[in-house]
Design a protein around this nucleic acid. Sequence first.
DNA 1: ACGATGATGAAC
DNA 2: TTCATCATCGTA
Length: 180
Amino acid sequence: MNLQPIEMLEKNFFRRDALTVAPDLLGKVLVREKNGEEIRFVIMEVEAYDGEEDSACHASRGRTPRTEAMYGPAGFWYVYLVYGMHYMLNITTGEEGYPSAVLIRGAREVTGPGRLTRALSVDASFNAKEASKDTGLWIEEGTISPSLGEVEKTPRIGVDYAGEWASKPYRFVWKDNLKC
DNA sequence: ACGATGATGAAC
DNA sequence: TTCATCATCGTA
C-alpha cells in the first residue's frame, strides 16, 4: 500500500484557462479548517467566468475594487455578496492581469453556492486571500474524478442579463450517477 | 411567485 | 448622494 499525503492544489493548477480549470475541479475536495476541525466537500458543480469580454463576468465592467482579486494571481479566493444575503465562493484562474475565476456552485451533499458558503462559514473576509492551509480554506486532490461522459455542460445560472454570453456552456456538473 | 437584504458601481 | 441591480434562497 502506498499511503501518500493528500496533495493540496497549488498555483500551477489554477494558472490555466478558467474553462480548463472548471471541469478539472469536479471531484476535487474543498477543505475548511476551523477551530481545529476540518470539513471536506467533494466539488460537484462549477462555473467559469472568463475575462472582460464575458458579459456575465464581473470584470466585464473593468477593474474595480471588487474585481481586484480576479486580476491578481491564480489560486486566490474571490468572494462577494449577492442579493444582500449570500456569499459566492470563487477561485481565481489564469495569468496575473487576466481576470477570470471559477465559481464553486455545489458539492456533494450541498447544492447551491449560497448554501455552500454558509456550510463552510465562508464570508467576504476570505476575499483576495490565497487558497492555502494558512487561510483555513483550500482545495485538495480527490480520490475519484468524473469520466468524460459524467460531466454535463450547461449555460450558467442566474446570468440571463448577459446577452449572448448567458447561453455559453460554461457550467459543469458531475452527474452523480453513483449516488445511492 | 415573491420578499428579504446590503454591497457595488454608475449616474447626477 | 441616490439609485437600480444583483453569479440566491426560503417560504408560500
